[in-house]
């Protein structure tokens, strides 16, 4: 496993938002975390990446216990996080946003004080940015544009691109399809598929449970801060209770399971 979450609880003050959650994500695997609003998905992600303190339990990256490490340190260890709302540096250019994605890998004095143009000529940096441009050709033409002026879909691509610039082993995404046109969302899911092929471990939080279960290998369902179902994506899709609670409405409108449609309707 690249990521192992071991009996983790997270609290805001005295109020527990995540209870005793355990999950894992392996190399070349997409794992999805689904559940209603307020189920604790985002809280769990924030705790994994070090933005929130873990109250009890432990988080492992590979063999390494990373519980309680600060977010800016975890980036150096290979955790990329595409937060909900994207978190652009809006008044900076697309290129500057991508350059900053590689910040964690360039902490030496020469890199810090070197001209950014010089950084762009460095081999491994060039390779990475070309990789991002290859995944999102649209960003190439927007390079010098301010990040804040991009469309929602382009901003999401930039947010993912910037996370990829950190050279992550593990990529966490919080609602990447939120507010995007269906074609753009599809493009983003296609990209996750491709990253999985490159061996990346991906933890995907989605409200659009159908889309995310379609692409995922495995899934966990959260409810009131706890994991209530887990299993392979296929298993979850065909689980009656899961479908009733999370897939019902959406599933009915698709034509893929006509035989079972009647059962979920109340």
């Amino acid at each position: 496993m690249i990521l192992s979450v071991d009996h983790v609880s997270v609290a805001y003050g005295k109020l527990n938002a995540v209870w005793d959650v355990s999950l894992g994500v392996g190399r070349g695997e997409i794992v999805t975390l689904i559940g209603a609003n307020g189920a604790g998905k985002t809280t769990l992600l924030n705790a994994i990446v070090g933005l929130l303190p873990v109250k009890s339990g432990a988080v492992y990256l590979g063999e390494r216990n990373i519980t309680g490490r600060k977010a800016h340190k975890l980036v150096q260890l290979g955790i990329g996080y595409v937060a909900e709302g994207r978190g652009m540096f809006g008044s900076m250019s697309v290129l500057d946003n991508l350059i900053l994605g590689a910040y964690a890998q360039h902490r030496g004095w020469t890199s810090q004080l070197g001209d950014a143009a010089w950084l762009l000529r460095r081999e491994e940096f060039k390779r990475r940015i070309e990789h991002v441009y290859q995944l999102f050709p649209r960003l190439t033409t927007r390079e010098s544009q301010k990040a804040g002026s991009l469309s929602g879909g382009e901003q999401q691509m930039l947010a993912i691109g910037r996370a990829l610039m950190t050279a992550p082993k593990l990529l966490l995404l919080d609602e990447p399809s939120l507010g995007l046109a269906p074609t753009v969302a599809k493009e983003i899911f296609g990209l996750l598929n491709r990253l999985r092929g490159e061996g990346m471990a991906i933890l995907l939080v989605e409200q659009d449970a159908v889309s995310s279960l379609k692409i995922a290998d495995r899934g966990y369902v959260m409810e009131m801060g706890r994991i209530v179902f887990e299993g392979t994506a296929k298993h979850l899709i065909s689980n009656d209770k899961v479908r009733q609670a999370y897939l019902g409405q959406v599933w009915r409108s698709t034509s893929e399971t006509p035989a079972q449609e009647g059962r979920n309707q109340v």
């Binding site: 800016h72 652009m88 540096f89 964690a104 810090q112 004080l113 950014a116 910037r162 996370a163």
Partner: peptide
């Protein structure tokens, strides 16, 4: 410079800055 961009980034969005290190 990179540190200059980082100084700006931290001012614009502290959380997003933490997520790039």
């Amino acid at each position: 410079t990179l540190v200059g961009k980082a100084l700006k980034a931290a001012a614009i969005n502290r959380r997003a800055a933490a997520l790039v290190g």
